[in-house]
């Protein structure tokens, strides 16, 4: 019985979610009385593989020129063979742009069970039980998954990486397949998000707005409030999708990760994608109508109320304090 974690990396750097999965995977492997191994694929991933041996007892490293950029097709080709040979009970990958492109098609090919947005897992009576988020994190579900293998897509920025340093074994995996023929997709390049205005990752105070702002015109008093305290206005995905704030002001896993001294979250329910981008703030104050909003799980202080009532009063109070 083993747990295999697919390492995720970009531009020569291992992504944090890999260490998060290895920490969580180690615990699961322990419960199963099994082994943990990491798999890393790439064109030149020796250095990263060797870095991973400090976090996993065994690291399987598969190098091939065609694996230079992630493609679900080439990854799938290699992993189908690898999984059939090594037979892990649980195959773990991130619920990410990489994982969601790869996991479901791998599950179909392997005729395996798969679960998205996984936040916990246990091995009881030879059965894998996973907890996963639903409805923007407002609800959880416990599911049992057939493990032949079970494909587990792990929520990013959720599990805590462990500082443990071990000296694992590095196993070279021969990728000798023809990975170039018969491909139906081709990677053409990466376009970085260009920043034309303020770099929100450098601001000390951020005021974040979410769906609770309801209408674009309601943004004005919030902007004025932000200006009055010298804060930069940022937003969660729905506000940016609506075009009310530019993409470079988006906080979250598909936007920017910020660590300001103070983050005031207004009408943000706290979908995990947003929380992933702001939970590192020194102090978090949240205002939301829903007492069960997940944002209150990461906030230091909370006000359960309508942001439109709170903002004008808060602005006035803070101004009085200044003078």
């Amino acid at each position: 019985m083993s747990v295999t974690v697919l390492a995720e990396h970009r531009q020569g750097t291992i992504r944090d979610v890999t260490y998060e999965m290895l920490a969580a995977g180690r615990r699961l492997a322990h419960e199963m009385d099994g082994e943990l191994e990491a798999v890393i694929l790439g064109d030149d991933c020796e250095a990263m593989a060797s870095e991973l041996t400090r976090h996993a007892p065994r690291v399987v490293c598969g190098c091939h020129p065609a694996l230079r950029y992630f493609s679900y097709e080439t990854y799938q080709h290699v992993l189908l063979k690898l999984i059939k040979e090594r037979k892990p009970a649980v195959f773990m990958l991130a619920d990410s742009a990489l994982g969601a492109d790869l996991g479901p098609s791998l599950a179909v090919k392997l005729d395996a069970g798969i679960v998205s947005d996984v936040v916990d897992f246990h091995w009881t009576d030879n059965e894998l039980v996973v907890s996963r988020g639903m409805h923007g994190g407002k609800l959880n579900a416990d599911l049992s998954v057939k493990h032949s293998p079970a494909i587990v897509m792990v929520r990013q920025s959720f599990f805590r990486p462990e500082p443990i340093k071990i000296k694992g074994e590095l196993v070279h995996y021969e990728v000798n397949a023809d990975l170039e023929t018969g491909l139906q997709t081709r990677h053409l390049g990466i376009e970085e998000l260009s920043i034309s205005g303020i770099d929100i990752t450098k601001a000390d105070i951020l005021v974040g707005v979410g769906r609770g702002v309801k209408e674009e015109k309601n943004l004005e008093p919030v902007q004025e409030f932000a200006d009055s305290i010298g804060a930069v206005l940022v937003g969660s995905r729905p506000v940016v999708d609506a075009g009310w704030l530019p993409k470079e002001r988006q906080v979250g896993s598909s936007g920017k990760t910020v660590k300001p001294k103070l983050y005031i979250a207004l009408g943000i329910s706290g979908a995990f994608q947003h929380i992933a981008g702001m939970k590192g703030a020194d102090t978090i104050i949240a205002v939301n109508k829903d007492p069960n909003a997940p944002i209150f799980a990461v906030a230091d202080y909370g006000i359960v109320d309508d942001l439109h009532k709170v903002v004008p009063v808060l602005r006035k109070r803070l101004q009085e304090m200044k003078s």
Binding site: N140, A141, L143, F296, A297, Y301, V304
Partner: peptide, 23 residues
């Protein structure tokens, strides 16, 4: 290959200090 066992509202782990009173 997956079977639902139960649904539940997740417990808020490190709860914020919720301030009480009027606005």
């Amino acid at each position: 290959k997956t079977r639902l066992i139960k649904l539940y509202v997740p417990k808020v782990s490190s709860a914020a200090e919720i301030l009480q009173g009027t606005v």
